[in-house]
Design a protein around this nucleic acid. Structure first.
Lengths: 200, 200
DNA sequence: CCTAGAAGCGTACGATCGTACTTGTCAATG
DNA sequence: CATTGACAAGTACGATCGTACGCTTCTAGG
């Protein structure tokens, strides 16, 4: 068995383009025909590699998840546990917002699927739950290390961190605010500073 | 001239349904045929009243803007200028998130159009700019009234308020968090408390 | 009473959608 | 060398999309 089958390169190229198209136009905005035309191949060629459209959507979400884990969770892992890791997560998360042409993939497709059922919605929500879990773990750790106050409401802190990231993507894209990322960083770091234990 | 032409009632019914569909499936997810079927009328009937699809989209955004102004800006106007008005704006804004079946209309359609050009995108962005202006005005007013500190960065405060609202809709819809609205209210009110002048 | 215009429906058109087939072409394996 | 299977292209199908046009019905204004 070769390390890469001949179709793998094509698949990667298709998924790469599909990730950008999905971030721009949504997962429903993706079309087998348009995708094939953009990549200079036939519509049935795309279909042969991915099967149905929902299969393609699921693979796109999986690919986006992989990118997110690499560019956010992976990068932040280099920082020390606890508060430094939390700050690194926030910074990497905001850096990730420029990964695709349309900004953040999950910010773009979440509103599209948040009121539906099915495996695509589940796959999208799973990423959100995963990042929540990781943030919660690091908050708990930071509390145990004395870097955050014991009475900090972890869920509230997670809520506000994620809010800043979401708004960063929103302000950057819809409102063309170049300072959106800086404001998000400031909001998060200020919030973390405030969550530190009272000096005694 | 009668107060209402005969087609007006139909138009309202169509727009009412279209607002919900757009919030669920996006402005591109709207279809003349589906809309007509749901309302028990003919496809050409809808087309005759609204013209092209883009015309319909523009009227939907206009209708959503009207609802937003009524349910958020209008409600908050009853509160006193300055800090009370700011708190009322936030509360009304969060209450408004349940207006349509899919939650917040603008949260649903903004990611869809934020990377495009054209009148629809402009109409969506205009609402965001308007609400920003109103928040800024009330922040300035609150500063002049001594309710907020003079060194408060208005744009940063606006950023964080809007972030909480956005995250409220996100957490409520995608993550099914029933406490999302309460967390957003807490985040905003805490943030406003922190922006008050230092006691002397 | 007559008439102009709006409302609404039916039909038709070309385009594009997702999906299911078939065909031809290589490369790797026995 | 023969053969199998993956890959890619081609073709076809029914459904649905947005839009255009024509017809009937109703109503308001002269």
């Amino acid at each position: 068995m070769p390390t890469t089958r001949p179709g793998d390169e094509r698949r990667r190229a298709i998924l790469q383009r599909a990730l950008n198209v999905a971030t721009l136009d949504g997962l429903e905005g993706i079309t087998l025909g348009k995708l094939a035309t953009e990549l200079g191949m036939s519509k049935s060629g795309v279909q042969g590699l991915f099967g149905t459209k929902q299969d393609l959507q699921l693979e796109i979400v999986a690919a986006a998840t992989h990118v997110f884990q690499e560019r956010v969770l992976g990068v932040a892992e280099r920082a020390d546990d606890g508060l430094p890791r939390l700050r690194a997560l926030a910074d990497a998360w905001i850096d990730y917002l420029d990964t695709f042409e349309g900004g953040c993939f999950f910010c773009a497709v979440a509103p599209e699927f948040d009121d539906r059922d099915g495996p695509v919605r589940d796959a999208i929500a799973e990423v959100a739950h995963t990042s929540d879990r990781i943030l919660r773990k690091q908050i708990r750790l930071a509390q145990r290390l004395g870097e955050l106050a014991d009475d900090v409401d972890a869920d509230q802190l997670i809520f506000e961190i994620h809010a800043a990231v979401l708004q960063a993507n929103y302000a950057r894209r819809l409102l063309n605010r170049p300072d959106a990322y800086d404001r998000a960083r400031r909001a998060i770091h200020d919030r973390l500073d405030r969550a530190r234990p009272a000096r005694r």
